[in-house]
Design a protein around this nucleic acid. Structure first.
Length: 542
RNA sequence: GGCCCCAUCGUCUAGGCAGGUCUAGGACACCGGGUUUUCAACCCGGCGACAGGGGUUCAAAUCCCCUUGGGGCUACCA
């Protein structure tokens, strides 16, 4: 019976790394019939966005990651927003102070950086100089009155601290090399370290699964647990997911692609900055690599420039037409391997076979091509109803013109079996939903299919039109027969007939299978588009 | 710089803890062929790895050490 928790700080969208952590927390809890808690770590007043917590929750739910206790659903550990638990933290902090296991400090940021620089210059690890005599309550009041920041630091123990980690084994830290760290900031909020240790104890958490970036925090947490008389927990520090350029996957990966694109396009600075709703100053800093705009700004600028950024946040994957079943399966296999060779697994199967000891120690690279393959497999696995639902969800998040009844949508979905993403389905079928006069003809395709060989393809259209009009009865089958017969008579491959037709009605050479495409469009509309194409391109040459 | 973690095909990984059954298995990618009305899909086949160096041992991908390489942390962020 493991009690796990996912504790995001609501600073933005849920990203792939967070989703992976949450997934493993869920897997362990479900596998052991335990509980999975969601806790919002909003103790940084400057970075929290009011909408982010909701966004994170939406993303988790979209993935199928449902929590037993937490926001919206409640539970015995309420409240689940740390910003609402200040009294609780203060009780423990005050206790620590009166036990002389923590003390007030009044350093300004400048003084602190000075101390750090000094340590760095001496090639030494920075250790906060613990005063031999701890400041009194009175002195703290005086400091506050003097306008100095008043924070509280925890006395790190000198003993060696062993972290028994489920994935890394025993990791030893020398307490002497660990600095006293802040547990209450001068704004009165606890730091992450204090809040999470207290909450994990109070909420009955038994297992901590988190990224390797937290490994160095763990000895501090263990020392805190000892000082507070809490029990220690089982830790599992997962390997990270890194991106191509090295380093862990983050919004910086998106920023980099955007920056390169802006630099090479060299467009109107002010315009772009205004699209991203950021100042020229911030924009310049971004180009110089001094700062990274936030996600909405990055996405807006990219959309304006028409460039595709690598997906990092869960919503990015949603917008690109991935389905949650595939994403969940894929991220589960990053740094973890199920006991058998079977790789395509549902959430339930993942839970059933989950084994904490099968987490791997090595960082992994996010392979988008494999994700694509997984997405296709899961699209095939989904029931019709589920797939339809996923597709409708996807469409509602796009500006696709596609709007149709379930029957047509389902028919499209079926015709697209083998597509790798829902975006592909949309792309292949969007011609059905635009007006004949709004078809955009792809220039390269026009040249290749219509104009090449002295306009052979274009010439085929007139013939096609007549045949279509002569059709006695309209069905996929009759359209197919007609096209095949025509190709045979002309002594050409079917492609020579089908491609001009496809281009005429879609404007591109990629679409649904052509027989179905024509049947869905209807003869009248098909003929209209053929006429349009003929009048638009006849007389044109290469 | 300091501290910590890691190291098997291009990528995700199995095997490692209990050394021999590993001429190292699977998946994705890639390459070749087939199928084909486009893109996919599908079928058949192929290429492809134990980072390097020392030990220990009858025997090392597996245990130990070093080197190299990668990663993380180094905030009054989480």
């Amino acid at each position: 019976m493991a009690v796990t928790r996912f504790a995001p700080s609501p600073t933005g969208y849920l990203h792939i790394g967070g989703a992976r952590t949450a997934l493993f927390d869920l897997l362990l809890a479900r596998k052991t019939s335990g509980k999975f808690i969601l806790r919002i770590e909003d103790t940084d007043q400057s970075r929290n966005s009011p909408t982010a917590a909701k966004q994170v929750m939406d993303d988790l739910r979209w993935l199928g990651i449902e929590w037993d206790h937490g926001p919206d659903v409640g539970g015995p550990g309420e409240p689940y927003f740390q910003s609402q638990r200040l009294d609780i933290y203060n009780k423990y902090i005050d206790q620590l102070i009166s036990d002389e296991k923590a003390y007030y400090c009044f350093d300004t940021p400048e003084e602190l950086t000075q101390m750090r620089d000094k340590a760095a210059a001496a090639k030494k690890n920075f250790l906060y100089p613990r005063p031999s005599q701890f400041p009194t309550e009175k002195q703290a009041d005086q400091a506050r009155a003097d306008g100095r920041p008043v924070a509280v630091r925890f006395c790190m123990t000198d003993d060696d601290i062993i972290v028994e980690d489920s994935v890394r084994g025993r990791v030893k830290f020398s307490g002497k090399e660990l600095s006293d760290f802040i547990i209450r900031k001068s704004d009165g909020f606890p730091t992450y370290h204090l809040a999470c240790v207290v909450d994990d104890e109070l909420m009955g958490v038994t297992h901590i699964i988190r990224g390797q970036e937290h490994l160095m925090n763990t000895p501090g947490h263990i020392a805190l647990q000892k000082a507070l008389g809490f029990k220690t927990l089982v830790y599992a520090h997962m390997a990270l997911t890194v991106s191509e350029g090295g380093g862990k996957m983050s919004k910086r990966d998106k920023a980099k692609v955007l920056k390169d694109a802006i630099k090479s396009a060299n467009p109107d600075k002010e315009k772009i900055a205004s699209v991203g709703n950021i100042s020229i100053q911030d924009f310049d800093d971004f180009l110089k690599g001094n700062s990274t705009p936030d996600n909405p700004a990055i996405d807006a600028m990219a959309e304006f420039l028409g460039i595709k950024l690598p997906e990092i946040n869960i919503v990015d994957f949603f917008k690109s037409g991935y389905i949650p079943e595939a994403l969940v399966n894929f991220i589960a296999l990053l740094g973890y391997s199920p006991p058998t060779d079977k790789e395509i697994l549902t959430l339930d199967e993942l839970i059933e076979t989950f084994d904490l000891s099968r987490l791997s120690k090595t960082n992994s690279l996010f392979d988008r091509k494999k994700l694509l393959a997984f997405n296709m497999e899961h699209m095939k696995l989904l029931s019709e109803e589920k797939l339809l639902q996923r597709y409708k969800d996807f469409l509602s998040g796009t500006n696709s013109p596609a709007s149709a009844d379930d029957k047509l949508l389902l028919r499209i979905l079926k015709a697209c079996e083998g597509a790798r993403t829902l975006a592909e389905v949309e792309f292949k079928s969007s011609f059905l939903f635009v007006d004949a006069n709004n078809i955009k003809y792809d220039q390269k395709s026009v040249e290749k299919v219509f104009l090449k060989n002295s306009g052979q393809g274009l010439a085929m259209l007139a013939e096609l039109k007549q045949q279509l009009l002569d059709l006695k009865e309209v069905s996929e089958k009759s359209i197919e027969d007609m096209l095949r017969n025509l190709a045979e008579r002309k002594e050409v491959g079917l492609g020579k007939v089908a491609q001009p037709l496809r281009l005429a009605i879609c404007g591109t050479t990629v679409s649904l299978p052509i027989f179905e495409a024509v049947d869905m469009l209807g003869i009248e509309e098909t003929v209209k588009r053929i006429d349009n194409a003929i009048s638009k391109f006849s007389g044109k040459t290469l």
